[in-house]
Nucleic acid binder design. Structure first.
Lengths: 127, 127
DNA sequence: TCATATACCGAAAATTTATTCGGTATACTG
DNA sequence: CAGTATACCGAATAAATTTTCGGTATATGA
């Protein structure tokens, strides 16, 4: 199956549950984009995350809708229009997203130095 | 390559950076196991996470060591002995692990009801 | 001697996830 | 009429991750 997970979320333990809801490549970024509570159309989200293939956003938005993290409104118009909004449940994840964003910002340079492109040839030599 | 990532971490944005350090299936659990600061041997870690294949723990501990989240001590003994400890850097991730653990605990029943095995046949019918 | 335990590694298989491509439908514009 | 834009879907491919299996080496104990 290319468009649907076999096991929706991981119920093995609470930590894995939370991780499984947001660990797919773009889900945390989508939550970050929707954080204000404003509704966004798929094409808008894609403009904010241009590196993500539209199909992936489709799939991940669908999963997040099923998981209750975002809500979807489809307008019966043509050409089609739909909107996604973060839900109350989704908002409860924002402190975690915030913490990860802050952590990444604070420690970015460590990893940039270690793995960044312009240091790629030096890193192994320097250990 | 079955034992090494092509791109060690994701430097696209701080949020993705943090996620990429912990999103592999068992990394967050490993950090949780090592949280006390006590050193643990690989076999001990495996006993605490029996569902993880030892080979995966190998690989993920190696990556986490390279990323600086844990440190490794190898004792020149036979049979071989080694120990892993969470580093100062790794400890700075614990508030995030804590938050995810707390979130998962708080919202576990929602997802258990929605996706849990004993409800698997009811879920689709009830929408 | 033979099985056990330890930590680790390589290769292959299985699984999951991401990406690309082509197609649906329809209103609007030139 | 032809082209554009919208949202979405299915299928095929690519890529990444996880799992399984077998092997290294050596001390210990039966």
């Amino acid at each position: 199956m290319a468009y649907e997970k076999k096991i929706p979320v991981d119920l093995d333990c609470p930590l894995r549950l939370t991780m499984s809801l947001i660990e797919s490549k773009w889900k945390s970024c989508i939550l970050d984009e929707l954080r204000s509570g404003e509704a966004m159309r798929p094409s808008e989200i894609h403009k904010c995350l241009p590196e993500a293939a539209p199909r992936v956003l489709d799939i991940q938005l669908k999963e997040m809708t099923e998981d209750g993290l975002v809500s979807k409104t489809v307008f019966p118009e043509l050409p089609p229009r739909s909107e996604y909004k973060i839900t109350a449940l989704g908002k409860t994840l924002l402190p975690i997203i915030d913490a990860m964003l802050a952590w990444g910002t604070e420690h970015y340079d460590i990893f940039e130095r270690k793995y960044g492109k312009h240091n790629a040839c030096l890193a192994p030599a320097l250990g």
